Computed example of a mutant assay.
Amino acid sequence: MKFSIDQKVMKAALKKAFEIVNNKSDKVILKGVQVIATEDEIVLTGSDAKNSIKVIIPSEYIVSIEDTGSTVFPDRAKEIIDKLSGDLSIETDGNNQTTIQTKKSSFEVNCWDASEFIKLPEIKSDPIVKLSSETFNNLVQKTAFSASTSETRPILQAVKVDISKDGLSMIATDSHRLANVIQPLEFDKEELSFPVEALSLESMTKVFGSHDVEIYLEGETQFIVKAGNTIFYSQLMNGNYPKLPPMNLSNFPSVVTLNRDEAIDCFEQIKIITKKKNNSGHTTFDFSGETVSLKGIQADAGKGTIDLDCIEHEGDPLRINMNIEHVLQALKNIDSDNVRFSLLGELKPYYITPTKSAFAQVNMLSPIR
């Protein structure tokens, strides 16, 4: 294998491919990135066995390809390329020793046999749906934070993706809170439903940039998302996502509308007094008419009260204990200027929703008992 390429192009591609690499992997080959040179492109692939990133460098970004071939770069090769500048000449011999050269520098790096690297499926079907990068990132951002981080019920570490005539829905829950968004789209095929690891989806948003997103399913195990010259492969999670109760978004005894930014500031302030070593504590949300009072107490720290003016309100006065961190994460992932707190009762789930949004968005949270 022998090719020449601008250092900035190679550096950027390696950075993406190494994004998923686990340096603590039991498989040495997965500590590196596979590099394949074909007659008209260079393909870099990083993997942790469960998730993989493929970055394609097309011919217009390559100075020249003199010989095709492949190898696996260890992290050391990436570190060297990161520090160089100008055009690079990269050549690998039959023993996987790779020479990286510029006009003034030359390094020989021991690489690994590419034939031992993980094999990824080819994309053989048409995309299920196409989305703008902004829409895809929004859907992930507004749901993945509610997925579980506990190993107790692994399936709850997933975001459940549903695609139907009603649109593309993403929903995540850790059993204490739930986030759901639905993006309208045209879809006239058989309904689909599958669980994708939340961390995998979040990783995708870090590497895709501004390119439109195409979503594929290959076989019964591979969820594939392509954006421009970057392809992300993720294994679907095993198990059935739990059946969730229907969300009734009408007939609430109490509904309060607050300014989102002011609400975030006030919850952040009350957190200062309630936070403990491992959590941010809880606050009493006391709705009494035209105002909401946030009340917090922590035996070792003290207590505090903050009043918020309601923009709109209806229904009966109600007091409910809320997990501060859960409320803050929900508020920070809403784009609307104002937010609506819909309350069912002191010990019943409550809902936080935007007053205006380009798509349906609901956060359902459990009170602190």
Results as ranks from 00 to 15, higher is better:
331 L>K: 12
165 K>H: 10
114 A>I: 12
182 I>W: 04
153 R>W: 02
269 Q>R: 02
250 S>H: 13
10 M>V: 04
107 F>W: 08
196 V>R: 12
355 T>Y: 02
292 V>G: 01
204 M>T: 03
225 V>P: 04
77 A>P: 13
367 P>D: 15
363 N>D: 06
65 I>A: 09
13 A>I: 04
146 S>L: 05
326 H>D: 13
51 N>P: 09
330 A>D: 09
325 E>V: 13
344 L>F: 08
188 D>F: 06
162 D>L: 06
349 P>V: 04
156 L>D: 01
362 V>R: 04
285 F>G: 04
346 E>H: 00
235 Q>L: 14
328 L>K: 07
344 L>D: 09
249 L>N: 11
80 I>L: 01
38 T>M: 05
270 I>Q: 00
123 I>Y: 03
284 T>D: 05
218 E>R: 00
360 A>V: 11
101 Q>E: 14
175 S>A: 07
281 G>C: 06
89 S>Y: 08
128 I>W: 10
197 E>A: 07
158 A>P: 00
166 D>I: 08
276 K>G: 00
357 S>E: 02
160 K>P: 00
8 K>P: 00
263 A>T: 09
12 A>G: 03
296 G>V: 11
60 E>G: 06
325 E>K: 15
59 S>L: 06
81 I>N: 13
6 D>F: 11
81 I>R: 13
75 D>P: 06
205 T>C: 11
21 V>P: 06
221 T>W: 01
241 Y>E: 00
150 S>H: 04
302 G>P: 15
146 S>N: 02
80 I>N: 00
309 D>H: 15
352 I>A: 03
9 V>H: 04
195 P>M: 06
116 E>S: 09
153 R>Q: 03
106 S>F: 08
306 I>D: 07
171 I>H: 10
